[in-house]
Design a protein around this nucleic acid. Structure first.
Lengths: 246, 246
DNA sequence: CGCAGTATTGACTAAAGTCAACCCTAGTGG
DNA sequence: CCACTAGGGTTGACTTTAGTCAATACTGCG
């Protein structure tokens, strides 16, 4: 079981923004819960659910999904290994969105009680959770900009840039990462039709900006892709490895 | 000076989601700072600024603005009297977006130090701030859904529904509120051209869904507008007037 | 093998953008 | 008081982008 592994990833995300002592890290690592295996396209938290726990993604890709109208779906966030898609739920009575697996995935559910206890005992952890939530919101905000303001191929380019950085796979010039998302799902992220996604993806391929092979994304020229996407990674980093600001 | 008035509005927003004692409310009300008058279209926080204070809107309308490309602008949030557009900045080293006035406006800047001290002394206030940030993020997420998933006129309808609820102006059937936003600004919110906004607005007017007169919006039939927008106000309420969840 | 989900392609339609003109109004300075 | 100006609103003609529908392949899997 690689549960520890993933809690480690989560702790790394926290400490990238907030300095935590070994003690505090241990307290977060001690969090645990029932693990669940999910097939692709399974929802594991429903809009309006009164949940008693928050999820941590151990493996696979998950998404926050909403329905602007009866017919359409909009993915408003993608979560990867080590993310907590609904940490916010520890503060709210009801889930305000549906969470689904995009691929086969494994999650654990960590009781709100445990989360809130760690926050109470270690204020620095509460601070770290706060920054984690803010970072998540910053991504949503950037997605709004992406969906609102760029043309189709650039939206895709921007998404791939973001995922590359979030998976910490960016290397000097050229690199690959595993991101097995279907074109239909890309359409739900970018608010485009799947046909148009297909054509835009092909245009990116024709331009040599990305290569896709069975879920493996290769970026032959990072600078070129970044430029095509007007990608500025500052919204993802937002690091302040200090303990408190006062 | 109606500074107290507006801090009251802010406290009301906090207490709608988190029960606070009189003592705790007083502590928030005691926050203060330099007040500033702004003309329309002035930016008062710049992307990347290392700020030492967070803003509270006393009067007028403000917005969070980003630039997806060189040419275009995207408004990612609108803030009204009693809102704190950048409360999050108390947790981050740098402002991650530009804040601008949409109309003439008045703001005050509250030092991060004061904010963090209230949070430290009164954990319930920290909790309330946390929920405030989550509520703000929920709105951004809903905007993503709106921009991504609805056709032009419905986007506008949804925005008007949201603003009506946020200004607490919703009455049984028919009501008015002051929302003096230009069509160019509406375009930047909805990610549409101003020409198309004009036409979509006219279509809403033709259908009798809204009446606009020099910044005064009248909604003759709330249910009809809500229906046209598929508006569900739950993302705005998210109330849990309890103190802590444990 | 056959199914289900996914990817690709073409032909056509619809939504939204662009360009450009024109009008109206509030605020400015003479 | 009035001419001038800038910002905002309205409209028409045309272009571009993206959506829709539908057919055809490809893939992994039971």
């Amino acid at each position: 079981m690689h549960m520890d592994q993933c809690l480690n990833t989560f702790v790394a995300k926290l400490t990238s923004r907030t300095k935590l002592t070994d003690h505090e890290c241990q307290a977060v690592l001690a969090l645990g819960g029932k693990s669940e295996q999910l097939e692709a396209h399974e929802s594991f938290v429903l809009l309006g659910d009164a949940t008693m726990s928050a999820c941590l993604v151990l493996d696979g890709f998950c998404a926050r999904v909403s329905r602007p109208t009866e017919e359409s779906r909009q993915i408003t966030a993608i979560y990867i290994k080590g993310d907590m898609p609904d940490l916010y739920s520890a503060f709210l009575p009801q889930a305000n969105a549906t969470l689904e697996s995009l691929t086969r995935a494994t999650i654990i559910r960590i009781p709100h009680l445990a989360i809130r206890q760690v926050m109470r005992v270690y204020p620095a952890v509460a601070e770290a959770f706060g920054r984690y939530l803010i970072a998540d919101a910053a991504i949503t905000s950037e997605w709004l900009i992406n969906v609102g303001g760029r043309e189709a191929a650039r939206k895709l380019a921007h998404l791939f840039c973001e995922m590359a950085v979030r998976m910490a796979k960016v290397e000097a010039h050229s690199f690959s990462f595993f991101f097995p998302i279907s074109q239909t799902q890309l359409a739900e992220v970018c608010a485009l039709s799947s046909v148009h996604i297909n054509r835009s993806l092909m245009s990116l391929r024709r331009d040599g900006l990305i290569v896709v092979d069975r879920g493996m994304i290769t970026i032959p020229n990072w600078d070129a892709l970044k430029k095509a996407a007007s990608f500025d990674d500052r919204y993802l980093v937002s690091s302040r490895p200090s303990r408190f600001s006062n």
